[in-house]
């Protein structure tokens, strides 16, 4: 089966893997974001803990988790392989280079952005995933692990919030390039559809990252240590919750 390994070790093949895994990870972002919206449900984290319990125990989800791990793994490995190949393609640098005049910053710095996201990811996984799966969390009123309380307390640490927000900015720029780039890599460039893909890509990057970034900011600035809305914003939160029902 040398043709398979040759295909996917070629420059285009690697790119295709990065694109496919990237789009898969985008779909993960959507699921993750929607699930996490439970945090805003003003119920002391009951719904969020039901959701996280489900995610941690459902056999289908547990299986998909491995796929997700592979997705991350391939995305990171192939991107790294491309990065090192590309670095070695030009060993003498230009004395003067004004690439900002011909391309976007995020397009040239996907590896940097990816690295920031990776660092965040490790911290994030340790803090929530590892402690939920392998640590000892107190039970909530439904006897589910009380991840909610952990989240709320984490989101009251300034450095964690700062890292979280920085990572979302990085993710946003990563997606601004990555989303449309994935379609280009897969050969899906058409004068009818590409403009739409670009608009969707922009919207996707901003909405998703904004959604994730709002969570720590909300808890840090607008709730007390237990996740209760501060009195100044409580009526607003109540009315939003009412509207959502």
């Amino acid at each position: 089966m040398s043709w398979i390994s040759k295909t996917f070790s070629s420059s285009i093949g690697r790119k295709i893997i990065v694109a496919i895994t990237g789009l898969f990870l985008c779909s993960f972002l959507v699921v993750h974001l929607i699930g996490n919206l439970q945090l805003f449900k003003h119920d002391d984290g009951v719904a969020f803990n039901i959701y996280s319990h489900f995610m941690g125990t459902n056999p289908v989800i547990r299986t998909v988790e491995w796929v997700l791990l592979l997705g991350f793994g391939f995305h990171i490995y192939e991107a790294w392989a491309l990065f090192s190949r590309n670095r070695s393609a030009r060993s003498v640098a230009y004395v003067s280079n004004h690439s900002e005049q011909n391309s976007r910053w995020q397009s040239r710095n996907m590896s940097l952005l990816g690295t920031i996201i990776l660092v965040f990811l490790l911290v994030h996984l340790y803090n929530f995933f590892y402690r939920a799966r392998f640590g000892e969390l107190d039970p909530d009123i439904n006897n589910n692990d009380d991840l909610y309380t952990l989240v709320v307390s984490s989101f009251h640490q300034w450095w964690y919030v700062a890292l979280y927000v920085l990572a979302q900015v990085a993710l946003c720029y990563h997606l601004l390039h990555g989303f449309k780039s994935a379609f280009q890599t897969l050969g899906l460039n058409h004068r009818k559809y590409t403009p739409a893909i670009e608009v969707i890509g922009y919207a996707f990057s901003i909405i998703v990252c904004l959604g994730f970034a709002i969570m720590p900011l909300y808890f840090f600035f607008f709730t007390n240590e237990q996740g209760e809305p501060l009195s100044a914003v409580a009526p607003l939160v109540d009315s939003i919750n009412l509207a959502l029902k």
């Binding site: 420059s11 285009i12 790119k15 295709i16 590309n86 391309s103 890599t185 050969g187």
Partner: peptide, 30 residues
């Protein structure tokens, strides 16, 4: 090096070869 869809190439191409060609290449390759 490998293409990472930065787009500098098409921006600097003196005869305006478009990035659409790279998509076609990817598609043809796949």
């Amino acid at each position: 090096g490998a293409c990472t869809n930065i787009g500098s190439c098409a921006a600097e191409c003196p005869v305006g070869i478009s990035l659409e060609n790279i998509a076609i290449l990817n598609r043809e390759f796949l």
